[in-house]
Amino acid sequence: MGDRTDIWQGTLSLMVLKTLQSVGAQHGYGIARRIEQTSGDLLALNYGTLYPALVKLEQEGYVETEWGSSDNNRRAKFYRITRAGHRRIASETKSWQQTSEIMARFLALESAR
């Protein structure tokens, strides 16, 4: 495993929503582990950042919660994406794709030196 980096500002919400879209309802720890695994363990997820992000996504109506039992029979809050969350993924994905294309143009510039 190489050096791990922090999550870029503005990307965590999209990562959470995409995770929930692909694997279904998950508790916070499951979401965190899946994000880290998906990144090839290159991202270091700060759990103190994840839970406030989940609360914010719930307040904004992008996720819903339900109490249940985790794999080890502990009480856990499970998060599930809503229709509004699916719409947010679509708009955020378009925005990030455009940003990536713009940055690719700048990274492709050759030095004038």
Rank of each mutant, 00 (worst) to 15 (best):
Q37H: 07
G48Y: 09
T11A: 12
L50H: 10
I35T: 04
L43M: 09
L12F: 08
T5N: 09
L42I: 04
L45S: 04
L17R: 06
Q26M: 15
T49C: 01
D3S: 13
D3K: 14
G24L: 01
Y47G: 02
T49Q: 15
Q21H: 10
W8P: 14
A44V: 02
M15Q: 12
G61M: 08
R34K: 15
T38I: 03
Q21L: 10
L43I: 13
G61W: 07
G28F: 03
R4P: 08
K18E: 14
G10M: 11
Q21T: 09
K18S: 13
A32F: 02
A32S: 15
A32T: 03
R33H: 08
I7N: 06
D41Q: 12
P52C: 08
T38Y: 05
K18W: 05
Q59R: 13
D6K: 13
Q9M: 07
L14A: 06
K56M: 10
G48R: 12
A32L: 06
Y29C: 01
T19A: 11
L50T: 04
I31E: 01
A44K: 15
Y29M: 08
S13D: 14
E60L: 12
Q37I: 13
D3A: 11
L45Y: 10
Q9K: 15
Y51W: 08
L43V: 15
Q37S: 13
K18D: 06
L43F: 09
Q26P: 01
L50A: 08
K56Y: 06
T49A: 10
A32D: 02
A32E: 00
L17E: 06
D3M: 14
D6F: 10
L12G: 06
H27V: 07
Q26A: 14
G10P: 05
D6H: 10
L45K: 04
G30I: 06
Q26S: 12
H27L: 01
S13W: 01
H27S: 04
S39R: 10
R4A: 14
H27Q: 07
W8R: 15
N46E: 15
T19N: 04
L20C: 06
V55M: 04
L17C: 02
W8E: 14
L54E: 02
G30S: 09
Q59W: 03
G30F: 04
R4Q: 15
R4F: 07
T5P: 00
S22C: 09
L57Y: 02
I35V: 13
R34W: 11
L57W: 03
A32V: 11
E60F: 03
A32I: 08
L43E: 01
S13T: 02
N46H: 14
R4G: 09
Q37C: 07
G61F: 12
K56R: 15
L42G: 05
L20F: 08
A53H: 02
L42P: 00
I31H: 00
R33L: 09
A32H: 03
L54R: 09
